[in-house]
Every structure is written in C-alpha cells, then in structure tokens.
C-alpha cells in the first residue's frame, strides 16, 4: 500500500495537471461557472432557513445565528456530495484515458476529490463574508478553535478518498452502483447534522449519528465560529472511520484493479 502511495506521490505533477484540466473544463463552459459553486449552497441555506426558522419557527435547531450555521454545514456537504458522485464515476468517465495511460489508477479518484475540494475552497469567501457580517452585527464571535477548520478539511479529504477508492471500481463492475449511491447520499443528508445539531437528536439516535464520520468532521468545521462545546465521541469515531475508509478503500482498490482494467 505504501509503495503505491509513493508511486502516486512521484506523479503529483500529473495530479496537478488533471486537477487543472477539471477546473478548466468546469469554468471554461460558462462564466457563471464560479457563481454556480456558490449559488447552490446559498440557495439550499435559504430554503432550509425559510422552512425551519420561518415556517416551523425553530431556528434553535442549530447554533445561533442559524443561517451561518446552515452555510457552514452546507458548504462541506456540497464537497462531500459532489465528490462522492464524481469519484463513483471516476474510472468510467475517463475510460479512454485509463485505458491509454499507465498511471497509478488511484490518481483518477484522488484528482476528483481534489478538484471538488478546490471548488469548496473557492466557495469559502462566501462563508467569510457571512462570518464578518454576523460578527459585526454582534451575533457571534470567533474563537481560537478556528484552527480546527483545516483539520476538518484534511479529515474530509481522507474520508472522501477512501470512499472514492471503494466506489470507483464498484461502478465499473456493476452499473447500478451510481443509482444506489444517489439514494444513499440523499438519505445521508438528513442523517448528517447539517440542518440540526447532534444534541437535538434523542440519545439513542445521537449514538447512531456518531458513526456518521461527517458528524465529527462538521463539529470541527463549526468549532471556531460558535461558542458551544464540541462533543469528543463523534470526533474520535469520525477521525478513525475516515482513516479506516482510506485503508479499506486502498486495499480494495488494489484488489479490484485487475478486473477493472479488463472491463473498462
């Protein structure tokens, strides 16, 4: 496994090329390209805000201010969602390139995670704008735990790479993986503390939610912007599950590679 990763590291220049290619394709088609990256989470945040804070009158589902809480949850979710969809198709979509270049095949997965990750980074100025707005308004304050934000980013990257390495070969070998992934993602959105906080769930459900690695990761993302205490259990479980997924994904990817190359 380490040998494979040193091969990938040796080809990081190519990884850069691939990511740049992805971003260029994404932003070459329309000048609206960048706007789309931020319109989507903003629109979703607005909808959930209207539904929960205005109609159900429960803005206390999350931390205050609820709109900021929503955005901090939705931006990483967008990365998660887009990356899973993209990595599941990573090998199928680039079948021609996979067939014609002898690169470590993991690159196709990692490049999708990074490309979507960069879009996530590009959407952060929006978050920054709202943070400044709410801080000036006096609704929230920043604290030192903001240093956990990059930690969350790294963990999410590890998690996404692991899941991607599991899904990409599965899609090659079974066509209907994509459909299943879509359904699971839609359910997972509600099974992730994005529009609510962990402690709003009943105790038994909280324990279940700990085993969603995103629960811990989102706690880390939010820690710097809200004064609330962060829970340790979901954090530890989330971190170990992320690493676990990466190890599992890497091993399974290596095992499936032979069959995948024949089918692609």
């Amino acid at each position: 496994m380490f040998e494979r990763y040193s091969r990938i590291w040796a080809r990081r220049a190519i990884l850069q090329t691939l990511v740049r290619r992805d971003l260029r394709v994404r932003y070459a088609r329309s000048w609206l390209g960048y706007l789309w990256t931020i319109i989507d989470p903003l629109a979703m945040a607005l909808i959930y805000f209207l539904v929960f804070a205005v109609i159900f009158k429960r803005p206390d589902a999350g931390h205050k201010p609820y709109f900021l809480f929503l955005i901090i949850g939705l931006l990483p979710w967008q990365w998660f969602n887009a990356s899973i969809n993209e990595t599941a198709r990573a090998l199928v979509a680039e079948a021609k390139l996979v067939r014609s270049t002898n690169l470590p095949r993991e690159l196709w997965v990692i490049r999708a995670v990074i490309a979507k990750g960069i879009e996530f980074l590009l959407s952060l100025p929006v978050l920054l704008a709202f943070v400044i707005f709410y801080v000036i308004k006096g609704d929230t304050t920043l604290n030192w735990r903001i240093v956990l934000f990059p930690v969350a980013l790294v963990l999410q990257f590890i998690l996404l790479t692991g899941i991607g390495l599991l899904l990409a070969p599965a899609t090659v070998l079974a066509d209907d993986t994509i459909r299943l992934v879509r359904i699971v993602l839609r359910m997972l959105f509600y099974g992730t503390p994005i529009i609510y906080t962990l402690d709003k769930a009943p105790d038994w459900l909280q324990t279940v939610l700990w085993f969603n690695p995103l629960s811990g990761i989102l706690e880390l993302y939010r820690a710097g912007f809200f004064p609330e205490r962060i829970q340790l259990a979901p954090l530890l479980i989330g971190a170990s599950m992320s690493v676990g997924f990466l190890v599992w994904g890497s091993l399974s990817f290596a095992r499936m590679e032979r069959a995948v190359l024949k089918e692609i």
Binding site: V25, A28, K96, L97, R99, T101
Partner: peptide, 14 residues
C-alpha cells in the same frame, strides 16, 4: 510511448 488510443487524453470542450 503507447500509440494505442491516440486521442484518449483529449477533451472535446477544450
């Protein structure tokens, strides 16, 4: 240098 799928790496949109 594989002259196998020559246009494999090319993308139509670029």
């Amino acid at each position: 240098a594989p002259l196998i799928e020559l246009t494999g790496g090319f993308l139509g949109e670029l």
